[in-house]
């Protein structure tokens, strides 16, 4: 492919990590780099996933030691490995915003990031904001303003909305709409989403 005729992406033996490199080989070849290497020795017995790597994500205030496939996105890690399914997959390419979570307090598209890139970082998902019996003010405002319909993009909308209140924004409806445009709501509940955000902004509750 392209300039790189030797790369054979469909080689069945090409696993998550090239065996030929290994950790020691990499360490010699690449001074100053730490190859994140899977280890057979510490692989949990019974794990079905080969070539996984140990990382720790701090999710919603709790350290989660995990073993992940290097290819696993932060989104799939949260949903399929950690089984926190409030964060949604809508496009898997950063084009809808349904997967929005906070990393170290900033909103990002978790679908375009590898879980491995976030070892030791602080992740907040919708479940970390509040539960039905103790909703975060933004969650409560979304209910009060009917700022959703089907609810599928809602987690991402709320994660964006909460982050937005701490971002540079003049507070006008127009600015809020622009800064919420990375979260597509196909049901079109946009006016009510703005209503919920402005309600929380005016209340000063966060």
């Amino acid at each position: 492919m392209g300039d790189n005729p030797e790369a054979n992406p469909t080689d069945p033996n090409r696993r998550a990590f090239l065996r030929s490199l290994g950790s020691s080989a990499a360490a010699v070849a690449v001074a100053g780099c730490s190859t994140v290497t899977p280890s057979n020795a510490d692989r949990q017995s019974g794990s079905r996933i080969e070539d996984t790597v140990s990382i720790t994500l701090r999710i919603n205030g709790k350290d989660r030691p995990l073993r992940v496939d290097p290819r696993t996105t932060l989104l799939d890690c949260i949903r399929e490995v950690v089984a926190l399914t409030g964060t949604k997959k809508g496009c898997d390419h950063g084009q809808c915003g349904a997967c929005t979570v906070h990393v170290n307090g900033r909103r990002v598209n978790s679908c375009l990031s590898l879980a491995l890139m976030h070892d030791g970082e602080e992740i907040t998902t919708i479940e970390g904001l509040g539960a039905p019996e103790a909703l975060h003010p933004m969650q409560a405002a979304f209910v009060a303003c009917d700022a959703y319909q089907c609810g599928y993009c809602t987690s991402g909308q709320i994660m964006s909305a909460v982050a937005l209140l701490k971002e540079p924004c003049d507070g006008s409806d127009a600015a809020v709409k622009e800064l919420m445009s990375g979260n597509i709501c196909r049901c079109g509940a946009y006016a009510n989403i703005v209503c919920a955000i402005q309600k929380v902004r005016k209340s000063g509750s966060i």
Binding site: I126, P132, F142, G151, T154
Partner: peptide, 8 residues
């Protein structure tokens, strides 16, 4: 609503 907004 409370379930939708809390990811549950």
């Amino acid at each position: 609503g409370p379930r939708k907004v809390s990811g549950l």
